[in-house]
Design a protein around this nucleic acid. Structure first.
Lengths: 115, 115
DNA sequence: ATCCTTTATTACTTGCCGGTTATATACGTG
DNA sequence: CACGTATATAACCGGCAAGTAATAAAGGAT
């Protein structure tokens, strides 16, 4: 079996998962939204399905794919110890949060503690 | 540049990161603990370094590698919307937590809500 | 300067993965 | 039934990434 990490390493597969986040989709929809060939989409979906990331439900000749949470949870669990790690290294964390902040806000920065 | 996902897709690379979690290590130490060839370790470290996962500090002829949090945070951020997703699908979440629980506990399960 | 240790780099090979084309299968419609 | 649509599968190809062997480079000890 394939590791969940290698599955998600593929950009188009991540894109598919991202789309399924909002609602289930047919192969054709994914094909159009991602501008991929149909066989390519089917192939990725097969990989995702066999790895448990998605499941299919047949609607006539279409097949509607939807997310399944487990494998992504697995990834999340692997990350957990690292989260604990960097929550101790506060300085780096702050720099990071600062960057995040700067990205999403237009208002002037609230200069932080030091100085 | 390489996506953080593809970097972490490699099992040995994950292993390296896992080890660095507890303390910084030299190439030779990683080599022994992971039973990998020296060039292989150096190569992985190069990839990890160029992607910002680790940084090196020279101690004489040795080089001590330690973790850097940013790229892993990036992964974590990608996962965020999915975390939100599955926290709404409580049933699957519960089944999952149940499994987790079962893994780490020896005491009898507390059968949950439905029946 | 020579030697030893530790790490980096190069050149090469090989296996795998994703894309494409072509074909098959499933299902509905006339 | 024949036909159109939607999806899956097969066969093939090209590229890339990881391992290895050999060599270089850096630093310390004598």
């Amino acid at each position: 079996m394939e590791s969940s990490f290698t599955i998600v390493a593929e950009p188009n597969r991540r894109a598919i998962l991202g789309l399924l986040l909002s609602s289930e989709r047919s192969v054709g929809e994914l094909e159009r939204e991602l501008r991929l060939s149909q066989p390519s989409v089917s192939k990725h979906l097969r990989v995702l399905r066999e790895a448990g990331f998605v499941e299919a439900r047949g609607d006539a000749q279409r097949r509607l794919y939807r997310l399944r949470p487990e494998p992504l949870m697995e990834l999340d669990e692997w990350l957990a110890p690292f989260r604990r790690y960097w929550s101790k290294h506060l300085d780096a964390l702050e720099r990071h949060l600062d960057r995040m902040d700067r990205k999403t806000t237009t208002k002037p920065r609230k200069r932080h503690g030091k100085k």
